Amino acid sequence: MTAPDPHDILGDSTALRDLLAMAGPETAPRILRQMHSDLTACAGLLAPALATGDRATIRAQTHVLIALAGTIGAMRLHTCAIDLNAAAHAQDPVAIAAQSGPLMADLTGLVALLASRLPKGEAAA
């Protein structure tokens, strides 16, 4: 699977840009680091949960994604997270499997995109 285009992940990135502008130059890097950290942690918990069918963790982590993705304007990821959360609540393994690939691709792409916007030397390993 190829990495999603950054424009597909954040559209025109207006929401993220506006959020960081409102935060100001001193706070914006901290917010960006925290979003990157939170999304990295979410991906690290979500991937094994999807592999094992751990619906409680899927529901918890998609809740995080719904909030973060919506806040920064990653609307396709936001929609996938809503759909995956609903599938986990419905205990629908077919729908969970169908949503997993696109969601993880966008989540991985978003983590990489945010890492690329961190101040030099701050990209997390």
Rank of each mutant, 00 (worst) to 15 (best):
M1H: 06
T2C: 08
D8M: 07
D8K: 12
I9L: 01
L10P: 10
G11A: 12
G11Y: 09
S13H: 10
S13L: 01
S13M: 04
T14N: 10
T14P: 02
A15G: 01
A15H: 05
R17A: 12
D18F: 02
L19F: 07
R30G: 14
R30E: 15
R33E: 15
Q34L: 14
D38L: 11
D38Y: 07
T40G: 08
T40M: 06
A41S: 12
C42P: 07
C42I: 05
C42A: 15
A43V: 09
L45E: 15
L45T: 08
L46M: 12
L46H: 07
L46A: 05
A47M: 10
A47W: 12
A49S: 08
A51Q: 11
T52D: 13
G53P: 00
D54I: 01
A56V: 10
T57M: 08
T57P: 09
I58W: 01
R59H: 14
R59Y: 05
R59P: 03
Q61R: 14
Q61T: 11
T62N: 08
L65H: 03
L68K: 12
A69P: 01
A69M: 11
A69Y: 04
G70P: 02
G70N: 04
T71W: 10
A74F: 02
M75Y: 13
R76N: 08
L77H: 01
L77R: 00
C80A: 14
C80K: 11
C80R: 09
A81N: 07
A81G: 04
I82R: 13
L84I: 08
L84V: 13
L84Q: 00
A86V: 13
A86W: 08
A88T: 06
H89F: 10
H89M: 12
A90F: 08
Q91G: 07
Q91M: 13
Q91P: 01
I96P: 00
I96R: 00
A97R: 10
A97G: 12
Q99E: 11
S100F: 06
S100E: 04
L103A: 08
M104W: 14
A105G: 02
D106H: 15
L107K: 01
L107G: 01
L110C: 07
L110I: 02
V111S: 07
V111A: 07
A112I: 02
L113W: 15
L113E: 11
L113T: 05
L113H: 03
L113C: 11
L114K: 00
A115V: 10
S116A: 15
R117D: 13
R117Y: 09
L118H: 11
P119Q: 00
P119I: 00
K120Q: 14
K120M: 15
E122V: 01
A124M: 09
A124R: 04
